[in-house]
Simulated scan of single mutants.
Amino acid sequence: MQPSIHHEEASTVTSKVEYQSPIGVIEIVGTEEAIVSILFTDSDVVKNGLTDLTFQVVKDCYDELDEYFSGTRKEFTVPYENEGTEFRRNVWQALTEIPYAQTASYRDIARFIGNEKAVRAVGTANGKNKLSIIIPCHRIIGSNGTLTGYAGGLWRKEWLLAHEQKHTDLIF
């Protein structure tokens, strides 16, 4: 279960850094209390790295992403704020229940949140997720097993799923 923080008014002071992942630059934005955004950028070069002024929670997220991409982290512990409607927050919370290296469909998530007819709305909420990787929208596939849309690009989604499969501990 991911730690989630909900505030009526989000802090306006943020700290922003870029992380060079194996599949592109990721911008991490956070307040002093929580991460508010983790999104792939169009840039090929990190322009804004860690500094002494970077908020600790942003540094922690940077480190956790580094561990994820090295294959040593399967769950994230950094607190985050996910601004959205109650429905969207429910969908995003359900996404965090999908285990590492496993997948689910929009229909699975709709059933999980108790609204089986909301498949399209689940898809829309999934697409509005601003916390890539720690809210694992990349683990959503079509009900027929095919890859479906991903804001970061289908090639990144395919890479992330293969990465998780590669680093799954086999239990016999």
Rank of each mutant, 00 (worst) to 15 (best):
A10R: 07
A10I: 07
A10E: 12
A10C: 10
S11R: 14
S11H: 14
S11P: 09
T12D: 15
T12H: 09
V13Q: 08
V13E: 12
V13A: 10
V13T: 14
V13K: 10
T14D: 05
T14Y: 04
S15E: 03
S15M: 04
S15K: 03
S15A: 10
K16C: 15
V17R: 00
V17K: 00
V17T: 00
E18V: 01
E18I: 00
E18A: 03
Y19K: 03
Y19G: 02
Y19T: 06
Q20M: 07
P22C: 07
I23S: 05
I23E: 02
G24S: 09
G24P: 14
G24L: 04
G24K: 06
G24I: 06
V25E: 07
I26A: 11
E27T: 10
E27K: 06
I28S: 02
V29D: 10
V29M: 12
G30N: 09
G30S: 15
G30H: 09
T31F: 02
T31Y: 04
E32A: 15
E32T: 12
E33K: 14
E33Y: 07
A34S: 13
A34N: 06
A34R: 02
A34C: 10
A34G: 09
I35P: 00
I35G: 02
V36R: 12
S37R: 03
S37G: 03
I38N: 01
I38D: 01
I38F: 01
L39G: 08
L39Q: 15
L39N: 14
F40E: 09
F40D: 11
F40H: 12
T41S: 11
T41Y: 01
D42Y: 10
D42G: 14
D42I: 04
S43D: 15
S43F: 06
V45G: 07
V45Q: 10
K47H: 15
K47F: 09
K47N: 14
K47Y: 11
K47G: 10
K47I: 10
K47A: 14
N48C: 12
N48D: 13
G49E: 13
G49D: 09
G49S: 14
G49Y: 09
L50M: 12
L50H: 08
L50G: 11
T51F: 01
D52S: 09
D52L: 04
D52P: 07
L53R: 13
L53T: 12
L53G: 10
T54R: 04
T54P: 07
F55W: 02
